[in-house]
C-alpha cells in the first residue's frame, strides 16, 4: 500500500524533529493547568444540574478543542508547502504514486500525530475516575468528536499547505480559517436568529459542542465528514493543477 509508505515517511519526519515533543509537552502542561483550575471552579461553585458532565463538556471544547485548533496549523503547514519549497515534490510527483495516495498518506500521518495529543488527554478522565468512578460511555462520543474535529482542521490545513510554498503563509491562513469556523456563532447578538441558525450549521464549535455532551448525533458526524471530504477534494484539485498551470 503506497499511501502507507508515504504515511510512514511523514511520521519519521515528524518524530525525528523536536516539534512534536515540545508542542505535546506545552499542550499537556497548559491543558493540565486548565483541567485543575476548571475542575476546582466547578466543584466549588457548581454550574447546572449535572456538574461533572457540564465540566467535561466545557473542558473538551473550550480547552482541549481550542488549544488543538491553535496547534493544528503548526503541523499541517509543512505537509505540502515544504515539499514544494525543498523541491522534493518533484520526486513525489514522478514516483509511481497517485495524488490521492500522497494526500491520504500525509493526512493520516498528521492525524496520527494528533492521536498522540489526544492520547495524552486520557490522563484527565483517568484521574477523575480514580477519585470518583463514573460511566465512561460519554467519552466515546467526546473522543470521536475530537478526532473528527481534528481531522477537519487537518484537511483544511492540508489544502492550504497545497497552495503555497511558504510555511508561514500556510500556517497563518489555516489559523484564520479555522478560527473563523470556530467563532462564527459566538456573538449571538450581532446577527438575527434565522441567520444564527444557518451559521450554527457551519460552525465547528457548535458541532463539537454537541459531541462533547456525550451524544453521537448523525447530523454532527455528517457535518464533519462532509467538511473533511470537501477540503480533501480541494486538495486533490490543487495538486492536480500542475496539469494545467505554468511552473510547479
Amino acid at each position: 500500500m503506497r499511501a502507507w509508505a508515504v504515511m510512514r515517511k511523514e511520521l519519521v519526519s515528524y518524530f525525528s524533529g523536536p516539534l512534536v515533543y515540545v508542542v505535546v509537552g506545552v499542550f499537556l502542561t497548559v491543558t493540565g493547568y486548565q483541567f485543575y483550575t476548571t475542575l476546582q471552579g466547578y466543584v466549588q461553585i457548581g454550574f447546572g444540574m449535572n456538574i461533572l458532565d457540564n465540566f467535561w463538556q466545557e473542558f473538551f471544547v473550550q480547552h482541549i478543542g481550542r488549544y488543538l485548533l491553535i496547534v493544528v496549523p503548526l503541523f499541517t503547514m509543512r505537509l505540502l508547502a515544504e515539499e514544494r519549497r525543498l523541491g522534493t515534490i518533484e520526486l513525489l510527483y514522478t514516483y509511481p504514486l497517485r495524488d490521492s495516495e500522497i494526500m491520504l498518506g500525509k493526512f493520516a500521518a498528521c492525524l496520527t500525530v494528533f492521536l498522540v495529543f489526544l492520547g495524552g488527554t486520557l490522563l484527565y478522565p483517568a484521574i477523575v475516575y480514580w477519585l470518583q468512578p463514573f460511566d465512561p460511555a460519554p467519552f466515546i462520543a467526546r473522543y470521536l468528536g475530537a478526532i473528527l474535529f481534528l481531522a477537519s482542521c487537518i484537511a483544511c490545513g492540508l489544502f492550504i499547505s497545497s497552495l503555497t510554498d511558504s510555511q508561514v503563509v500556510a500556517s497563518s491562513c489555516t489559523l484564520v480559517i479555522l478560527l473563523l469556523f470556530w467563532i462564527v456563532t459566538w456573538n449571538e447578538a450581532a446577527v438575527n436568529s434565522s441567520l444564527l441558525t444557518a451559521l450554527s450549521q457551519l460552525s465547528t464549535f457548535d458541532h463539537f459542542w454537541a459531541f462533547s455532551r456525550g451524544v453521537i448525533d448523525l447530523k454532527d458526524v455528517t457535518y464533519f465528514v462532509l467538511f473533511i471530504a470537501f477540503f480533501l477534494f480541494l486538495t486533490l484539485r490543487s495538486m492536480d493543477s500542475r496539469q494545467w498551470r505554468g511552473r510547479r
Binding site: 519519521v12 525543498l86 518533484e90 514522478t94
Partner: peptide
C-alpha cells in the same frame, strides 16, 4: 532531478 534535493530529516 537537477540540484537533487532530498528529505534532509
Amino acid at each position: 532531478p537537477e540540484n537533487v534535493v532530498l528529505y534532509p530529516d
